[in-house]
């Protein structure tokens, strides 16, 4: 029996090899019908080293990212650890409905999105401009110094940054108001008015992250051919013109991709900074989804994993929708897109 099947499989294999050989031989333009499949197999064969390279990363993703994804099911169940994920009762969309029926649902979602939009609109261009400006700085040591200093606040913990911010913005004792008063601007309680929350959050975010965000653009800029700049200079182009026509296009792919990714994570407004900056007077703009989830956790003293997972899933779905929209737009408007 075994001998028979071995013979059989050998025959099949030889035949297949023959077929592939024939296809290889016949590879070229102008072939009818079978060209698509042939082309596919050809490409796969030609790119076999690339597939080999991909194997390890793909394996990692499968094991560490896809396998645990069944945990998202918790959102559709009443999770009971004693029964495990599979044993917990199925409740369908109950948690989603619960979330949407919250009295403050719209306010929370809109606060989250608005905060993220502010952060993006103001926070996104600054690192780009910073990178472009730094790139043009002639003095190398100064350039390096500025880079190192501006990227450092990123590493100071949020607790400390918000602490500093609170002190800075204090109407009576804070440096900012004292400075403004010097110029005749009256003192304002920036943290005590809901209307100021988004600007303060955004600008302090720029303060903290502009330097760090500019790194990727600086790396992209460093690959710009110096000869191009020299040629343009000989032609009489000003710094601004050179930046616009040489530097900017060079980093445009990075800009677009990063913008797509940014919009695709709009709902992920972090919890820590918002929570620390929140107070009773600015909740109308500062209550976001992540702080709500935190408060639910504290109140119940017993983490509701199902509810939190459902909300997280809700966020993800919105993010993906945004992502698809932006990516499609990018595809149509430029050469760069995520897929």
């Amino acid at each position: 029996m075994q001998r028979l099947s071995r013979a059989f499989s050998n025959k099949v294999l030889t035949k297949m090899k023959g077929m592939i050989g024939v296809m290889k031989f016949h590879a070229g333009p102008g072939l009818p019908k079978k060209s698509k499949l042939r082309q596919l197999l050809l490409d796969v064969d030609r790119g076999r080293q690339l597939y080999l390279l991909m194997m390890l990363p793909v394996a990692y993703i499968l094991i560490f990212k896809y396998q645990p994804m069944y945990g998202a099911l918790i959102a559709f169940k009443d999770f009971d650890p004693t029964a495990g994920i599979w044993g917990s009762t199925w409740v369908g969309l109950k948690h989603f409905v619960r979330f949407i029926e919250q009295p403050k649902f719209f306010q929370m979602v809109s606060n989250t999105l608005m905060l993220a939009l502010w952060d993006s609109i103001i926070g996104f261009p600054v690192p780009i401009l910073l990178a472009l400006a730094l790139n043009n700085v002639a003095h190398k040591k100064y350039k390096s110094f500025v880079q190192t200093v501006t990227y450092a606040p990123h590493f100071i913990s949020t607790v400390v940054i918000v602490g500093m911010l609170t002190q800075l913005l204090h109407p009576r004792m804070g440096a900012l108001n004292l400075l403004f008063q010097h110029f005749g601007v009256p003192a304002v309680s920036y943290l005590g008015k809901a209307g100021y929350f988004r600007p303060v959050y955004t600008l302090s975010g720029v303060w903290q992250n502009a330097g760090w965000g500019s790194i990727i653009y600086l790396a992209a800029l460093s690959s710009v051919d110096v000869e191009l700049h020299q040629a343009a200079q000989i032609d009489g182009a000003s710094i601004v013109q050179r930046t616009r026509h040489i530097d900017l296009p060079a980093i445009m792919p990075s800009i677009i991709i990063l913008l797509i990714l940014r919009i695709g994570s709009l709902m992920n407004v972090g919890f820590e900074k918002v929570f620390l900056m929140q107070n009773q007077l600015n909740l109308t703009t500062s209550e976001v989804i992540s702080t709500y989830v935190y408060k639910m956790g504290i109140m119940s003293q017993f983490p509701d994993y199902s509810y939190a997972t459902a909300i997280g899933l809700f966020n993800s779905v919105v993010n993906v929708v945004l992502l698809v929209i932006v990516n499609t737009t990018a595809k149509k408007a430029s050469e760069t897109s995520l897929w």
Binding site: M54, P57, V58, I61, K65, Y66, Q67, P68, M69, Y70, G71, A72, I74, I85, G264, S265, Y305, T309, G312, L313, S316, N319, V320, L323, L338, W339
Partner: peptide, 17 residues
């Protein structure tokens, strides 16, 4: 492949699994 990779940025199983 890109979609295969990017999908994991948005959906994850969470801490328990």
């Amino acid at each position: 492949f890109i979609v295969f990779f990017a999908f994991t940025m948005y959906f994850s199983g969470g801490m328990i699994p």
